[in-house]
Design a protein around this nucleic acid. Sequence first.
DNA 1: CGTGACACGTGAAGC
DNA 2: TGCTTCACGTGTCAC
Lengths: 230, 230
Amino acid sequence: MGSFCWSSGVYNSGFQRTNDGVLVNSGMRYGPASALALASSSSLVLDSVRGELVEAPVKLERKMVSAEKSVEALKNHSEAEKRRRARINAHFDTLRGLIPGAKKMDKASLLAEVISHLKDLKRKAAEASEDSDCVIPKDIDEVKVEPDHKQALDALHLITKRAEIATLGCRMKNVFVMTTSKEENDEVCRFYARSVCQALRAVLEKFSASEEFLKSPHSNKRRRVSVFNP
Amino acid sequence: MGSFCWSSGVYNSGFQRTNDGVLVNSGMRYGPASALALASSSSLVLDSVRGELVEAPVKLERKMVSAEKSVEALKNHSEAEKRRRARINAHFDTLRGLIPGAKKMDKASLLAEVISHLKDLKRKAAEASEDSDCVIPKDIDEVKVEPDHKQALDALHLITKRAEIATLGCRMKNVFVMTTSKEENDEVCRFYARSVCQALRAVLEKFSASEEFLKSPHSNKRRRVSVFNP
DNA sequence: CGTGACACGTGAAGC
DNA sequence: TGCTTCACGTGTCAC
């Protein structure tokens, strides 16, 4: 890449003095791209020895126009970039106001802080949603016990030994200890016991599946239904 | 601001030809600041007419050193800036991974998304903490009813018409509708009623105050104790 | 003096 | 083509 002249901050079109003469409106002032665009035709120079312009005023006009267009484009460009920076910085300021104790923090540290807060809050929010959808059952959480199923359970003549419903926080623990009457045949008892276990497993799996379906892809909810002891 | 020459991308120290002679190692190549630093002493020029150097080779050496130092400083500067940009951009990428569906999002939109997520999660987290400290009472939530106070209530011969304890989610609604027996004097009844109302108000205020004390400065928890109808 | 953080204008690339 | 976004090197200020 070659060197070029740069006028910082000011967009003025004017003349530049050289030792050979007056270089009219050199595109070099506006960067390599502009210079290249004008390099296809020869430079417009006032020869100090012969005292005349090398090119016609018509072409000079065209050059003025295209040069001004380039200047305008470059000006628009820098102003657009300025707006973009302002937009991003406004968001940085908003974040500084959102993160406690980050009023005067530099961009990198601020972003790091934002990231840690985001991770932290995501974890907390996951727990919160887990709790809330635990205590307010959705339609999909409903598990129907059909009459014939209930009759099947009734046929076992089960005796409820213990029924425990304990809640801590928003978690619930249900314990049902059931047994059959001693009069029943052991064989029949074991068969029914297996059937009950399978049925309850199916219910728990359906429950888990529906819960899985409700989960967001990156959710890290803890499982609510864990162990089933037959 | 004045114009100056800029060599883009390459850090080379060399010579620049002018019509008056050979300008040795012009600081102009490295921006206004460098130019200013070298402007304090005269330029080192090889006079083409007289055929001799204006200044001694010793000073030329010094200038080479200081120029090389400037080049080195500028190089360090641009590299440090590069590291800074990389640091910030790494955080941007982390955020893109943290916000769902923001993999290819531009910086401004990403920050806007981060802000809305942050506000959303803050709200959810506040609700979560509100719920959790609601169902697990702290010591400070305890409201003691002293024996003498209870006796005072007993003296009213209050009849509990209705007692309602309803829970939804982690919120609890307690409704106590009490009245006095019809035999009591209306005057006495009203006096006691006022006393009871004042006492219960005091209890609720104490409860609210302790809750207020527990709140973090920027918390937006919803109040749990709201209306008391005498 | 150096070092770090920021804003700026600009070239390049994608649409 | 023009518009947008990004990386870059640089000027500048503060510590």
